[in-house]
Amino acid sequence: MKHYEGYLIDLDGTMYRGNEKIDAAPRFIRTLQEKDIPYLFLTNNASLTQKQITEKLNGFDIPARAEDVFSTAIATATFLGRKKKGARCFVIGEEGLHNAFQKEGLEIVQNNADYVVIGLDRHLTYDKLAAACLEIRAGAKFISTNSDLAIPREDGLYPGNGAITAAVSASTGVEPVFVGKPESIIMNEALRIIGTDKSRTIMVGDNYKTDIQAGIRAGLDTLMVFTGISKREDIGNLPDMPTYHVDTLDDWIKKM
C-alpha cells in the first residue's frame, strides 16, 4: 500500500450514520493528525454551513474545523464564482447554500438570473419551482448541487436534491450541470483546496455510487468502508473496483 499525502473523506456513512456515532471515525482522524496528513471532509449536503457541520462532527468526538469541511454548497459557489464574478443567481436551497453564495460574492436574485441553482430545500414550494422554470426558460443556466435522488433518515429514505432537480428538468427539458459527487467538479475544487497531488490523494467513503465513483472518475485511488450504504456482499457485482475496501476504518489505521 502506498503512502497517501492527502485524504478526501465522506461524512454520512463514513464519519457517522445520521445521528449515530461510528466508533472508528475519531480514531481515524486523530491518526491523520498525528501523522500530519492533510484531509478534507467532502459532503453532498448543501443545506448546512461549515460551522454547523463542524459542530456535528465535534459532537461525535471527531476533530474538525470549519476550514476542514467542503460541501457542495461551497463547491458550487466557488465554481460559479470563477465562471462569472458576482453572478446573479436564483437559488433554491437552505442556509448552507445561501451562506456559501454570499461569502463568494454571488448575488442572490429573484429574476433576470445568470444561473438557476438548486440544492435541497425542505421548505420547497410550487412557486419556487415555477420561478426556477421561468428563469431557465428565459436563458439562465441550470446548476444543481448534486443528483442524489434519496437521502437516508432514521425512518427511511427521503426525497433528495436530485428529485427536486428532476422536477425542474422534466418541466423545462433542460438537463443541469451537477456539481457534487460522483461528478468531477467537486473533486477538482477539493483538490485545489487540499493542495496534494492527485496521484497521492485518496477518496474515502461508504457509498460506491457517489463517493467511490467520484474518486474513480477524478483519477484518484479509493477506499470503500462498509459502515454505511454499500455492503461487503456488493463487491462481486461492482463494474469498477475500489482500490481498497475495509470493514471499518480501524482496519485501515492498522495499514497506515
Rank of each mutant, 00 (worst) to 15 (best):
G6M: 06
Y7R: 12
D10E: 13
T14C: 02
Y16K: 11
I22P: 04
D36N: 15
L42T: 00
T49I: 07
Q52P: 06
T54I: 15
E55F: 00
L57Q: 02
D61A: 10
D68A: 03
A77M: 04
G81V: 11
R82K: 15
K83I: 11
K85N: 14
G86S: 13
A87P: 14
A87M: 14
R88F: 10
R88C: 03
H98V: 13
N99G: 05
E107A: 05
Q110N: 10
D121K: 08
L124M: 13
D127F: 06
D127C: 04
A130E: 12
E135P: 00
K141W: 09
K141A: 02
S147L: 11
L157Q: 09
Y158E: 15
Y158P: 14
Y158L: 14
P159N: 10
G162R: 03
A163I: 11
S171N: 09
T172E: 01
V177K: 07
F178A: 01
I185Q: 00
A190R: 01
K198L: 09
R200A: 06
R200K: 13
M203F: 03
V204M: 04
D206R: 03
D206K: 11
D206Q: 14
D206L: 06
Y208R: 02
R217V: 10
K231R: 09
D247Q: 12
D251F: 07
I253V: 15
I253R: 02
K255C: 01
